[in-house]
C-alpha cells in the first residue's frame, strides 16, 4: 500500500470515529469547541515552573480518551507529525535558565522544569485537539465556528479545503498506482516523470473539484453551507461545559492539589 493510500485510509478512519454514537460525539459541537479552547488556554497560561499542576491537567485527556472510547496510541500515531515539533520547543531552556529549583541528588534547574512544562503543554494541547477532531465532524466544527460568527466565507473555505484535500489525495493515489503498475521495479518515481505526473495530478484534481462544485451548485449551493445539525443545547452539554470550567479553574487558580495532598498526609 502506498503512503498516500495509507494517509487516505487514516482520514477515513477519522471520519468513522466522528460518526460513532458516543457520548462525546453527541455533545453539542459548540460546547466541545469551547471546552477544548478553554483547556488549551488554561494549559498555556500555567507559569513555567508549575510543572505538577500542569501535569495534572492530563486528567482531562484521560477522562475524554476513555469517555470517547478513543485509543491514545492512535491519537499519538496520528499526531506524530506535530508532536515532535511541540516537544522541541523547550529544548534549549536548560541551557539558558540555570536557576536552581531543588536538589534531588543532582541540581534541578529552572530550565529543566520549564522545558518539561512546555513539552507537557504542547503534547496536551495537540492531544486535546485530536480528541476534538476525532469526535466532531468538520461540518460540526464549522457549524460551531459559524455559531461564533466567524465570517461565513472563511468557514466555507475551510470546508471546501477539506473536500478538495480529499480529492487531491485520491487522485494522487490513483496516479501513483497507475505509475507503479507500469514501473514495478522502481523505487519511488523517476525524476523525469515528476513533471508530467504532477501536471496530470493537478489537472485531474481540478477536473474533479469542478465536478464536485457543479454538483454542489446544482443542488442549490450558493456559497454557504447549510448545516444539518442545527442542534439546541441540552442539559448534558451545559453540565459538561460547567464541569470542565470548574476543573480548569480549580487546577489553575487554586491550590487544590496541595489541599488534596494535605488531606492525605
Amino acid at each position: 500500500m502506498s503512503k498516500i493510500e495509507k494517509n487516505l485510509r487514516e482520514v477515513k478512519k477519522l471520519n468513522e470515529l466522528q460518526m460513532r454514537d458516543g457520548i462525546l460525539n453527541g455533545l453539542h459541537p459548540v460546547v466541545k469547541l469551547v471546552t477544548t479552547i478553554l483547556y488549551i488556554l488554561a494549559l498555556v497560561s500555567f507559569p513555567k515552573y508549575q510543572v505538577v499542576p500542569c501535569f495534572v491537567m492530563c486528567i482531562y485527556l484521560i477522562l475524554l480518551f476513555n469517555l470517547g472510547d478513543l485509543s491514545i496510541w492512535d491519537g499519538i500515531r496520528r499526531m506524530k507529525l506535530i508532536l515532535p515539533l511541540v516537544c522541541v520547543v523547550g529544548i534549549f531552556n536548560p541551557f539558558f535558565d540555570h536557576t536552581e529549583i531543588t536538589r534531588v541528588g543532582i541540581v534541578i534547574t529552572g530550565g529543566m522544569v520549564s522545558m518539561i512544562t512546555l513539552m507537557l503543554k504542547g503534547i496536551y494541547a495537540v492531544l486535546a485537539s485530536y480528541i476534538l477532531i476525532a469526535t466532531t465532524s468538520i461540518e460540526d466544527i464549522c457549524y460551531a465556528l459559524r455559531w461564533f460568527h466567524m465570517p461565513k466565507i472563511l468557514v466555507t473555505v475551510i470546508l471546501l479545503i477539506d473536500r478538495y484535500f480529499y480529492i487531491l489525495g485520491e487522485e494522487a493515489g490513483r496516479i501513483m498506482a497507475a505509475y507503479k503498475l507500469r514501473a514495478p521495479k522502481q523505487n519511488g518515481i523517476h525524476y523525469k516523470a515528476w513533471g508530467p505526473l504532477v501536471g496530470q495530478w493537478l489537472l485531474r484534481s481540478m477536473d474533479r473539484a469542478e465536478v464536485v462544485y457543479e454538483s454542489m451548485s446544482l443542488r442549490g449551493f450558493r456559497g454557504e453551507f447549510t448545516y444539518a445539525g442545527r442542534k439546541s443545547f441540552r442539559w448534558v452539554d451545559i453540565a459538561y461545559l460547567v464541569f470542565w470550567c470548574a476543573v480548569f479553574y480549580l487546577l489553575r487558580y487554586t491550590a487544590v492539589l496541595e489541599m488534596l495532598g494535605q488531606m492525605f498526609i
Partner: peptide, 8 residues
Amino acid sequence: DSQLFMTT
C-alpha cells in the same frame, strides 16, 4: 464519486 461529496 464526484457527485457525492458528503460523508454519509
